[in-house]
Simulated scan of single mutants.
Amino acid sequence: MKLLFVADPLEGFKTYKDSTFAMMREAHVRGHELFACEARHLRWQRGGKVTALSRRFTVTADPHDWFVPEARADAVLAEMDAVLMRSDPPFDSEYFYATHLLEQAEREGAKVFNRPAALRNHPEKLAILEFPQFITPTLVTRDGAQVRAFHAEHRDIILKPLDGMGGMGIFRVGPDGLNLGSIIETLNKHGAQTLMVQRYLPEITQGDKRILLIDGEPVPHALARIPQGSEIRGNMAVGGKGVAQDLSARDREIASQIGPILAARGLLLVGLDVIGDCVTEINVTSPTGFQEITQQTGFDVARTFINALERHALAK
């Protein structure tokens, strides 16, 4: 198969932990042809089809000098067997525009994973609102007075921006309400921006679990990202320690309810973030955790994902 990865620059990949790299390596081992471009390389012109200035490449055995590229050339997305949208967040205007170009490519015959419309329809913070039975008390608002009322009710809360990634912009405010006003102003820009507020979950000390769903089915191990020191965030980007662990009965219950629904919408790969018994985010842009889970448990996540990709890409 010919696989086009729409991703961040290959030169910046951290091959020891990058999940997109794990996908590429597994696909290369199977003999698939690999192509890569950035979202900024997508293009459409009347009379033609969506193309991308891309480069074919092969994967080497050297983790530092890991790919050998060919010269860049225009590739028609509809002529690929699969297009994988793996650009990292944030989900900004340019990401939004890229999903529209990818959706046009779908109309021309391309198979895109995850589906562009599904990417747009599942913003990673707000997608949890569809599943209130699995979330902690949550408020989404621009109104500072409503945030204050939420704090008065729940006493210990987390505040976060809707467009953050890697733990960026997350604050905890305890019963004393210290700095609540300043934090509200920082996040809502004096009422100009919407934020999310949630009751603090003390189970974060045991880790913020990443549960990977592949074609609606959960990988049998989660990656618990455990905060270190005085940090309240478990994100690996801010120093959280990743520990793979078997899914709990509650994890499986959550996955069994959410997984098939999202898979039916064209989300081949999803990362559920779960603290304790509650889902806190649904990641669909470029879920990670492949390598850590595989290294610690022996379960080959990349193999499982490429198996699913092949089934869908080769289906009539």
Rank of each mutant, 00 (worst) to 15 (best):
A78T: 05
G109P: 11
R142S: 13
R40I: 03
E94P: 00
Q206L: 15
K125N: 08
L314Q: 15
G216A: 04
V147R: 08
Y16I: 07
L4I: 00
Y97C: 09
G298L: 07
G144H: 08
V274W: 12
R172H: 14
R86C: 00
I170D: 07
M236C: 08
I128A: 06
A7P: 03
D246G: 09
F21L: 13
L139C: 09
S93T: 09
F67M: 02
H64C: 10
R252S: 08
R142N: 11
F67Y: 15
Q146M: 14
T141L: 10
R56L: 03
T141A: 10
R30W: 07
I275C: 05
S248L: 04
H151A: 06
L223R: 12
A302F: 10
T136G: 07
Y200K: 04
G144R: 08
L269N: 06
L126G: 06
T285D: 01
N114K: 01
A149L: 12
D88Q: 09
A145K: 14
E94Y: 13
M1V: 01
V140Q: 12
L139V: 06
M236N: 08
A73V: 10
K209H: 12
S256G: 15
V140Y: 09
P89A: 09
E217L: 13
F131M: 05
I306P: 04
P137W: 11
G191R: 14
T186I: 14
A313V: 05
E33D: 14
R120Y: 05
H64F: 08
T297S: 05
R25G: 02
L201M: 15
L3T: 06
Q257S: 14
L212S: 11
Q146S: 12
D74H: 10
G234E: 12
A313G: 03
E310M: 07
S54P: 03
G276Y: 08
P202H: 13
A39N: 00
A264C: 02
